[in-house]
Simulated assay, not measured.
Amino acid sequence: MDFQIGSRLRELRNNKKLSIAELSKISDVSTGLISQIERDLVVPSVVSLWRLANALDTNINYFFEEQQQEDGVLIRRGDHKIIVTHRNNSFYKLLSPTRAGHLLDMTEVRLKSGCAYEKETLCHSGEECGYVLKGTLTVHLNGNEYVLYEGDSIYFNSSLPHKYINNSEEECISIWAMTPPFF
């Protein structure tokens, strides 16, 4: 599915009357990366996209919106939105509806071996709870490292610096609940 992230980013930035340099400053995303995203030369990480969305007073879903034909209550197998990043090494399946006004995001995260969702830690408002369905997931949280195995869960305040990485040899599949909505 072609979401045209670059053109949507450029249109929203122009509507807000921001230069690339101004957007870079308020989003903490480099001017070079913003330019590459707008020209569809790269697919941004989920965190970079989240930073841009926050700076532009929207959410990640803005870049992936399409006409929804369901009532926003039920999402059937095969109809979930999937965000692919990091050269097809991480996949985010949105399990909750992406309509405006909801208070919670549910996401299935698949990380291939050696993949992290972002190089640097992230801090934002809210709370997160993750549950590992398959594989092993290392969570860097506030200077500590937690290794989660199948069946383990973790809960934390999202304002603490955090990131996830799959240091194992197999794919890791986990389910995450986040509030306020990240996507």
Rank of each mutant, 00 (worst) to 15 (best):
E169H: 08
R39P: 01
T107F: 00
S24E: 06
N15I: 05
R13K: 11
H80E: 12
T138Q: 11
T98K: 07
G130S: 13
I165P: 03
L49V: 05
K17N: 14
L12Q: 11
G78Q: 08
S35F: 07
I60M: 07
K119H: 11
S24G: 11
P44A: 07
S30V: 06
Y164G: 08
E118T: 15
H140M: 11
V46C: 02
C123Q: 14
F183E: 05
W176G: 01
L94G: 02
D105K: 05
I26M: 13
S27N: 10
L94C: 08
I154G: 03
N14P: 01
V46G: 00
N54L: 10
S174P: 00
G151P: 03
K25Q: 13
D40R: 13
N88V: 03
N157K: 09
V84W: 03
E169P: 00
P161K: 12
G78C: 07
C115H: 04
K16Y: 10
G101W: 03
F183P: 01
T138G: 04
S27C: 07
E108G: 04
L111I: 07
D105P: 00
L41V: 15
K81I: 09
N89H: 11
D28E: 14
G135M: 06
I5F: 04
Y164D: 00
I5H: 05
L52I: 15
V43K: 13
L103H: 12
M1F: 05
S158K: 05
L122W: 03
N167P: 03
Q68I: 14
N167T: 14
N61H: 07
R110K: 14
D28F: 09
E169G: 04
E66L: 11
G130K: 03
F183Y: 15
L104Q: 01
S125T: 02
A53K: 09
E170G: 04
K163R: 15
I175S: 02
W50F: 10
V47F: 00
S19I: 06
V84S: 06
I75V: 14
G72R: 13
Y131E: 03
M106G: 13
H162N: 10
L49W: 04
D28C: 12
K25D: 05
E150P: 01
T107S: 03
E70N: 15
C172V: 15
P44H: 09
S24T: 11
E22G: 01
T179N: 00
S113T: 11
S96G: 02
H140L: 11
A100C: 03
Y146Q: 14
L23D: 05
S159D: 05
